[in-house]
Design a protein around this nucleic acid. Structure first.
Length: 883
RNA sequence: GGGCGCAUAGCUCAGUUGGUAGAGCGACGCCCUUACAAGGCGUUGGUCGGGGGUUCGAGUCCCUCUGCGCCCACCA
């Protein structure tokens, strides 16, 4: 398409320019540039599980506008994309889509083909097929590969200027290698360790869960008041509990040391109802006299406070829950005969069934006092889980994160303060999280699709593993799969044999890999040259909800490995809200797919809406804004078409303009105003205020079209010096505006640019304010301001008279101060042509000055009335002609 | 219970060091005007959440209250 040919359209621009950009490598990183010239972005790898929703697109588009600005301003932008495909979300999706479950005990079936289920909901829980670990992992890879293609399509549709040649996936060889290498180094420096300890546990997924992945959910529960008979024959002690099914795991009851009701009987014993186990009465300051009856049942383990009591009061361990959340089959050995006799009724039951049974037994024994009182209370869940977490004892890997080391925590907070946060108030979320850590970072998961721990254990002559002295993989051999490969010096035949070995069966939590995205993207220990040019990175953009996970853990890994911050800046995007301003639910975000919005409003329309949200500020979905954005994009095409149609070679006109061809005062005035806008937008972008840059540019652009363009276009049609001045001014302004809108409307800007320029606008230099000022002489904006306000008065008069805008004006009387009349005089010809004015009379007045030192015609009229002086525009229209 | 953010026109939002309240959308009216009718021009519309305070002057600074959102803690 050319400027003159047909009516400009936005349709098809996404596909057209995406193809051109890919083919010509517009966004390809030039790795010959030095670190000082490079701007590197630690793009969040989206979780590849199904479909990208609008909330993700919102933040990525904002960052893309920054990336495009940085590229135009002369930085070489390093902008990779990653896919976070390892971990539980993928496993869960594979289970649903293929109807399979992983059974590590099964042998691998080569060439196994499993059809994806068309309707996963209908087929759920039916025909579940058990497959080997290796087959399961194959299916994970198969599905994520499909999803990644779909994701890349969406990102390209919305115009992300990433270099697709730099893409990584958190399960790929490079990421597994980096994650294993970083872990081995943590281990060797003593920053990682394994420990057998009570751990929050999801009974459905059967994996340990980290502090950062907990959520509280209000859950229905009920108080049960139990009577504990005192061993010394004193009055029974009443204990409230919401977990009566854990009564057989009770190891003590605990009260506050100052509580007068209980402190004198501390150390004596009570007998648990039904089960008849003698447990001590103990004291601890964490017991709250105001909760329940003021004395609590300590079980191993009911909640995290139990762990503290158990540890600090040196209580015994009496676990009754298996890892699948059911009670033990075998009768616990600590139960006396009376308790042991009821166990067969409880064995293997889930907690709900066990609760019902135990409540029956308590009632029969007369140990349940009063009614069961239903309550709602917050309970800890795994954020991706459906049932409350339990606590089981297991061997897990941890990384020291400052929870138990004040110096490290303070160093991490100090590192956070060296980061520039956009917006700054997000910093406190990080500091609160670091300050509130209470356990080291649990990085192991008892799952399949993840990065294995590169560790084996020797088996002793009786076949028992020796955990204290693990065999570590050699860095050169990474990535390794200890469940599929033997350690050096062993053969596969020795796996599981006495004096042989076993591989660590756990995988790393997905955050243990994604905490290394700067190292992964920049080629740490893989590509030293690239690393030197890109690390530490310039920007980490991300969502506010993962400050405690991703941002914190990345900071931690970088501090441990490099002793430095991983980036200089972090920008935190806001939430997307439903149109009713509630936080967007996943379901509604998926109903409105980004692809559908691109179809309806164009990528530029969608981007315009997204770029109106400032960093960290929540933004409502607003389809009206997307329409406005689309209109702006179309306006850019139309205005470009018009300006470029004024001469045969408008880029030559722009060049002439830069050599002094802009001679008319009003043409210089528009460039002077534009120079100010360029300065403002540049400052805004440098401070990560892309939305301000957009707002200023947009406002100027509409005024440019409505006022300046209308004022000068009739003059610009000619071929004299005045026409050449207008053409030069218009060409310079158009070039500038196209470039200033390019970060926000990359497709329309590129299209309009292509009509008269060589090369991509996205590699064109960002406009220079000082260069523009160089063309304006001593011109001020006043000429344009006065002319525009007079034109507005003329339009107002015509509109009030219900006449068309081409209606001739017989006489225009302008009453104003000398300065403004002089300014008007410099643009009088343009005003007469634009307003179709026959006769102009001017009347000079004095002393009409606005409060802020400026005058415009309308405000001046209001001020002047009180002072008896008139500054007015009188418009006398030609009488209507009868037709 | 602690922290952070938000509250300005019917709607979505600007308002950078305190100095006469802005824009867009919507609504209403007008206009085929040779870049644009999927357009243009114009009009209407606000005791800046409530209450105190500082100041010559507060949407802006301080205190307080209310509502909404988010984060953290507790959870017998």
């Amino acid at each position: 398409m050319t400027a003159e040919s047909v009516k400009p359209s936005l349709d098809g621009l996404e596909a057209k320019w995406d193809a051109v950009w890919q083919e010509s490598g517009t966004y390809r990183f030039d790795r010959t540039k030095d670190r000082a010239e490079v701007y590197s972005i630690d793009t969040p790898p989206p979780t590849v599980s199904g479909e990208l929703h609008l909330g993700s697109v919102f933040g990525y588009v904002q960052v893309d506008s920054m990336a495009r600005y940085m590229r135009m301003s002369g930085r070489e932008v390093f902008y990779p994309m990653g896919w976070d495909d390892n971990g539980l979300p993928t496993e869960r999706r594979v289970q649903n889509v293929y109807g399979v479950r992983c059974d590590p005990a099964l042998p691998y079936e080569p060439g196994l083909v499993v059809e994806a289920k068309t309707d996963s909901k209908a087929d759920k829980n039916r025909d579940v097929r058990m497959v080997s670990r290796a087959n399961f992992l194959e299916l994970c890879h198969e599905l994520t590969a499909i999803d990644e293609v779909a994701f890349e399509k969406v990102w390209r549709d919305v115009g992300l200027s990433v270099d697709w040649g730099l893409t990584y996936a958190t399960i790929d060889d490079r990421c597994r290698r980096v994650a294993q290498r970083a872990f081995l180094r943590n281990l060797q420096r003593g920053e990682a360790y394994a420990s057998e300890a009570p751990t929050l546990w999801d009974v459905d997924f059967q994996t340990a869960v980290a502090q950062a992945e907990l959520v509280d959910r209000d859950t229905a529960s009920a108080y049960h008041k139990l009577a504990f008979v005192r061993a010394d024959g004193g009055p029974a002690i009443e204990v409230d509990t919401t977990r009566p099914e854990l009564l057989p795991a009770c190891v003590a009851i605990v009260a506050h040391p100052e509580d007068p009701r209980y402190k004198d009987i501390a150390g004596s014993e009570v007998v648990t109802p039904v089960f008849g186990v003698r447990v001590p009465i103990v004291l601890h300051p964490l017991a709250d006299p105001d909760k329940g009856t003021g004395i609590a049942m300590v079980c191993t383990f009911r909640d995290t406070t139990d762990i503290i009591w158990w540890r600090e009061l040196d209580l015994p361990t009496r676990s009754i829950l298996r890892r699948d959340g059911r009670l033990l089959e075998e009768t616990p050995e600590w139960l006396p005969e009376s308790g042991a006799s009821v166990w067969p009724d409880l064995a293997g039951s889930n907690t709900k069934q066990a609760r019902r049974k135990i409540v029956e037994l308590l009632t029969e024994a007369g140990a349940l006092i009063g009614d069961i009182r239903p309550i709602q209370h917050p309970v800890k869940y795994y954020e991706k889980g459906d049932r409350p977490l339990e606590i089981v004892t297991s061997r897990q890997w941890y990384i020291r994160n400052g929870a138990r080391d004040t110096d490290r925590a303070e160093a991490l907070i100090a590192a956070g303060r060296r980061l520039d946060w956009h917006p700054d108030f997000m910093r406190v979320r990080y500091e609160h999280w670091v300050g509130g850590l209470n356990t080291d970072w649990l990085i192991s998961r008892q799952r399949h699709f993840g990065v294995p721990f590169p560790v084996w254990y020797r088996l002793d002559p009786s076949g028992e593993p020796t955990f204290a002295d693990p065999i570590l993989a050699d860095e050169a051999s990474l990535p390794v799969d200890p469940q599929g490969q033997p350690p050096a010096g062993f053969t596969e035949a020795q796996r599981g044999q006495p004096n042989g070995f076993i591989g660590d069966s756990d995988v790393m939590d997905t955050w243990a890999t994604s905490s290394l995205t700067p190292q992964i993207a920049c080629g740490w220990e893989e590509d030293d040259d690239l690393f030197a040019r890109t690390f530490p990175m310039d920007l980490r953009p991300q969502g506010p909800e993962i400050i405690r996970t991703w941002l914190f853990s990345t900071m931690l890994r970088s501090q441990l490995e490099h002793g430095t911050e991983p980036w200089a800046n972090t920008s935190i995007n806001g939430w997307i809200l439903d149109p009713d301003r509630k936080k967007m639910s996943k379901s509604s975000g998926n109903v409105v797919t980004p692809a559908a919005l691109v179809d309806e409003h164009g990528a530029d329309g969608l981007r315009y809406w997204a770029c109106h949200g400032a960093p960290g500020i929540d933004t409502a979905i607003d389809y009206a804004q997307m329409k406005v954005g689309r209109r702006l994009a179309l306006k850019l095409l139309n205005a470009s078409k018009f300006v470029l149609g004024l001469g045969d070679d408008m880029s030559a006109a722009a060049a002439a303009g830069m050599q002094g061809a802009v001679t008319e005062a009003i043409d210089r005035a528009v460039l002077a105003k534009l120079a100010g806008v360029v300065a403002e937008a540049t400052t805004a972008f440098e401070g990560y205020q892309y939305q301000r840059a957009l707002e200023r540019t947009e406002t100027f652009f509409w005024n440019f079209c409505d006022d300046y363009l209308e004022l000068v276009k009739l003059r610009a049609y000619g071929n004299d010096e005045g026409a050449r001045s207008a053409q030069a001014g218009l060409a310079i302004a158009l070039s500038t505006l196209q470039r200033m809108l390019a970060p926000f409307l990359p497709f329309a800007a590129e299209e309009a640019w292509s009509w008269w320029q060589v090369g991509s606008i996205h590699r064109a230099p960002w406009p220079s304010s000082s260069e523009l000022f160089g063309q304006t002489g001593d011109a001020t904006a006043e000429v344009l301001d006065v002319a525009a306000s007079v034109l507005t008065e003329i339009r107002k008069a015509k509109s009030a008279a219900k006449r068309g805008m081409v209606t001739p004006v017989d006489r225009l009387v302008l009453t104003d101060t000398a300065d403004r009349l002089a300014a008007f005089g410099l643009a009088e010809g343009d005003v007469r042509r634009a307003g179709v004015v026959a006769v102009v009379e001017v009347v000079e007045v004095v002393g009409v000055v606005g409060v802020d030192g400026t005058v415009d015609a309308v405000a001046a009229a209001e001020v002047a009335t009180a002072e008896g002086v008139a500054a007015t525009v009188t418009v006398e229209l030609q009488a209507p002609v009868a037709t």
